[in-house]
Design a protein around this nucleic acid. Structure first.
Lengths: 199, 199
DNA sequence: TTGACAAGTGGAGACCTCTCCGTTTAATAT
DNA sequence: ATATTAAACGGAGAGGTCTCCACTTGTCAA
């Protein structure tokens, strides 16, 4: 007559081991070949598990990449919080710039994996942007800061949500790498331009 | 002793017929199922040709889509030229808005094919944006108008090329459909917001 | 200890993209 | 008419994504 346990039981031992094998294998292959050219098949083979097992845990390469950069993402999240607390008396436009700087720095370091996360992610394209919690959190912060800016300037700026959407898409790997590689802009230049355009 | 003809001979008769079969088949399938879910295989089968033949002509679905909207694109290009000539005494910011309006209208009508063109297009992601001649042309116009605006305002705005890049990416199907479907903004609202943000 | 059974496994298979290359054929020169 | 030849053809096949499901195995209650 007991209720079936609603809380999921802890991960099974064999499953946990396989998860680790996958992570290790993926990291190894990504380091050797880069993220994009490595296939799910290869990862499964390298981890010595069946394709089905791999797909049971990660529906696609994005999810796998997301798991691989979980720690750096958490760190970034903490860095952002710390920065905002340490500078809460600066004008909002300056905090905005600081935020962007942190974000760009992060992108620079983890470019490969981030592109992996963003790429081919979406069955329903745009939805991917909002699905990552980091992106949602970042978007939220941008909105707040934009509102602060408008408030301070005593004039209604454009819709902050829209503006944040535009800025986020301007920060996508696609756009960033284009500026970096095709336009030949440095990280600093891009940061400057972004501030001039959006703030 | 004749020189071999350098100019390519006119397209062979059978080739021309197959091209038409492909275009017809694609149009039929796209109308029935939408662009995205139709595979190159299906198109080849519907056109009753081998896969190799299809790929000889169109390296991927984007190229095929580009061929399918060639006429509307040319029309848009002419419309833009006409608009600019008819309004060359308006302030540049107004012309900019007019341009965007034309462009958004175009996107609205041909959303499916355009998404098809943009999607999965790029081995080197960002390069796709510059590869379409329409996009290059449009980018060029935006740059010019931005410069006019800065000139008129007697103050150096941010780099016009960068600004145009940002605006173009804001006009991508990804971004546009997100605003349309997730944010629930109408075409007019989006136009307003774009102008407020970028002009 | 021992079922019971949910969770986990793996590989066959459906369908996809794209290439390669032996065969066919339209266009041209003789 | 016939030979030549470059272009076009098509399907086999390599390698990819992802699903399905018969089978195994860890876990827990009895």
């Amino acid at each position: 007559m007991d209720q079936p346990v609603i809380n999921c039981r802890p991960e099974r031992k064999d499953a946990a081991e396989n998860r680790q094998r996958i992570l290790d294998a993926a990291l190894r292959l990504f380091e050797e070949h880069g993220v994009e050219p490595v296939s799910m098949n290869q990862i499964a083979a390298e981890a010595q598990i069946g394709a089905g097992t791999l797909y049971r845990r990660y529906r696609n390469k994005n999810e796998l990449c997301m798991d691989l950069i979980r720690d750096p993402v958490d760190q970034l999240s903490r860095d952002i919080k710390a920065y905002l607390q340490g500078n809460n008396s600066s004008p909002p436009s300056e905090r905005l710039r600081g935020l962007l700087a942190l974000f760009l720095q992060f992108k620079e370091i983890h470019a490969g994996l981030i592109a992996g996360v963003e790429h081919s992610s979406a069955p329903l394209g745009a939805h991917s942007r909002t699905s990552t919690s980091l992106y949602e959190e970042f978007h939220q912060l941008l909105v707040q800061l934009f509102e602060e800016v408008s408030l301070e300037a005593r004039q209604a700026g454009p819709d902050s949500v829209f503006r944040a959407d535009m800025l986020m898409i301007a920060l996508s790997s696609d756009s960033y790498l284009f500026q970096r590689n095709v336009r030949g802009n440095s990280q600093d230049t891009i940061l400057d331009q972004l501030c001039q355009t959006f703030i």
